[in-house]
C-alpha cells in the first residue's frame, strides 16, 4: 500500500450569508458538508460532480485559500489547519494549484520570467544565481521555448497560458498539485496536449494530483481513483475501473449514462434526472439525492446513508446509498 500524502477528514466549508440592516449572519451555504478521503502518493484522484456540488470548494479549502469551517486536513502527517499563517505559507511549496481560466490566472503585467522568478523568490527554493537556468528548464519541461521567456501573457494562446500556470506551480517543486478544472476552458485538442503534459510531469516528478473536473471523459483518461460528489457530500468513491464498469450509487449511474457513446451495439439506457439540484443553503434531509432519486423511499428521507462497501465490491469501492445491494440484485425497483 502506498503512503498517504493527504488525509482529509470530515471537511466542512459553510459560507455565511449576511442579511438585514445589521449584517448579521442569517444562514449558511453548506458548500462542502463533511467530506472524508485520502490521497496516496503518486496517484491521481479525481473529484467529479455537477456545478455547485462543492468540488472546487474542497480543493480551495485544502489549500486554505478559503478558511474551512471545520474538519482536518493532514498533509504528510501534519494538520494543515493547525498551522499559523507563517507556517502555512512555508508549507505551501509542497502543494500547488492550477486554475481553470488561463486568462484570469496569470497577472497580465508580468512576463513569464517574472512570474516564475517570483514563485521561486517567495519560497526561496532556488538560489538567486541558479534561477535563470531553472526558469529555462521549467519552461522547457512544460513545452515553452526559451525565446518566450520575456513575453507578456497577452502574447500567448489559452493553451500556452495554461502551460505558464503549470510552470508556475512546478517552480516550487510541489508534491501535490490540485488541478481545479485545469483543462475545462481549453479546446479539445489543447485539452489532450495539456492532459498528456500533466501525465508526463507526474511520471517525471512523482507528483500527486487532485484533479477536479466535470468532464467524465477526461477523468477516465487521467485518474487512478474517482470521487463523485453531490451537494457537498461524497456519494461514491472507487478506483476508476470499478466506478466506470460498476457504478453503485443511483446518482453515479445517472451521471455515467450521460456520457455520449460511440458504441452503437451497446446502447445504454439514458437515465434522466428530473428537477434541479436543491439549494445548498437548506439541503434535503437524509440522503441528499432523495429529491431526484428514482429509487427513493421513506428511509432515504429520514436516514443519512454513510459511505460503505457492499460485500460484492472489491478494493476501496464505497458508495453512500441504503439500497445499493437491492438495486444491484434487482430487488428494489424504481419507486417513481
Amino acid at each position: 500500500m502506498p503512503k498517504e500524502l493527504l488525509k482529509v477528514t470530515d471537511l466542512k466549508q459553510h459560507f455565511p450569508i449576511k442579511g438585514g440592516i445589521l449584517g448579521r449572519t442569517v444562514n449558511h451555504v453548506k458548500a462542502v458538508d463533511g467530506v472524508t478521503f485520502d490521497i496516496y502518493e503518486g496517484e491521481t484522484l479525481s473529484i467529479v460532480g455537477e456545478s455547485g456540488c462543492g468540488k472546487s470548494t474542497t480543493g480551495r479549502a485544502i489549500l486554505r485559500l478559503d478558511e474551512p469551517t471545520s474538519g482536518q486536513v493532514e498533509f504528510d502527517g501534519e494538520d494543515l489547519l493547525s498551522f499559523n499563517k507563517r507556517r502555512m505559507n512555508k508549507e505551501r511549496k509542497n502543494m500547488q494549484i492550477i486554475f481553470q481560466d488561463p486568462y484570469a490566472s496569470i497577472n497580465p503585467r508580468q512576463t513569464v520570467r517574472q512570474i516564475l522568478n517570483e514563485a521561486m523568490e517567495i519560497q526561496k527554493v532556488v538560489p538567486k544565481k541558479d534561477r535563470e537556468a531553472r526558469i529555462r528548464e521549467i519552461m522547457d519541461t512544460v513545452g515553452l521555448g526559451p525565446h518566450q521567456i520575456d513575453r507578456m501573457p497577452h502574447e500567448f494562446s489559452g493553451g500556452q497560458r495554461q502551460r505558464i500556470g503549470i510552470a508556475r506551480a512546478l517552480a516550487v517543486n510541489p508534491k501535490l498539485i490540485i488541478a481545479d478544472e485545469a483543462v475545462s476552458a481549453l479546446d479539445v485538442s489543447i485539452q489532450a496536449q495539456v492532459i498528456n503534459l500533466l501525465k508526463k510531469l507526474q511520471k517525471d516528478f512523482n507528483l500527486t494530483y487532485l484533479f477536479i473536473a466535470h468532464d467524465l471523459g477526461v477523468v477516465r483518461h487521467i485518474s487512478d481513483r474517482v470521487i463523485v460528489m453531490y451537494l457537498g457530500k461524497i456519494v461514491e468513491i472507487a478506483d476508476k475501473k470499478s466506478l466506470f464498469s460498476n457504478p453503485q450509487h443511483p446518482y453515479t449511474k445517472a451521471l455515467l449514462s450521460a456520457i455520449p457513446s460511440t458504441d452503437m451495439e451497446r446502447k445504454r439506457e439514458r437515465i434522466t434526472l428530473k428537477g434541479d439540484v436543491p439549494s445548498p443553503i437548506d439541503p434535503p434531509t437524509g440522503c441528499r439525492f432523495h429529491t431526484r432519486c428514482p429509487f427513493a423511499t421513506e428511509k432515504c428521507v429520514n436516514e443519512t446513508p454513510q459511505l460503505r462497501q457492499a460485500d460484492y465490491l472489491k478494493g476501496g469501492h464505497q458508495a453512500a446509498c441504503h439500497y445499493m445491494e437491492e438495486i444491484e440484485s434487482g430487488e428494489h425497483q424504481p419507486t417513481r
Binding site: M88, F99, V172
Partner: peptide, 17 residues
Amino acid sequence: KLEYIDAQKALGASDSR
C-alpha cells in the same frame, strides 16, 4: 477575486507583495 491573486496566495506570497 481574480485567480492570479489566489495563485499568489497559494504560493505563499505576503499580503504586502
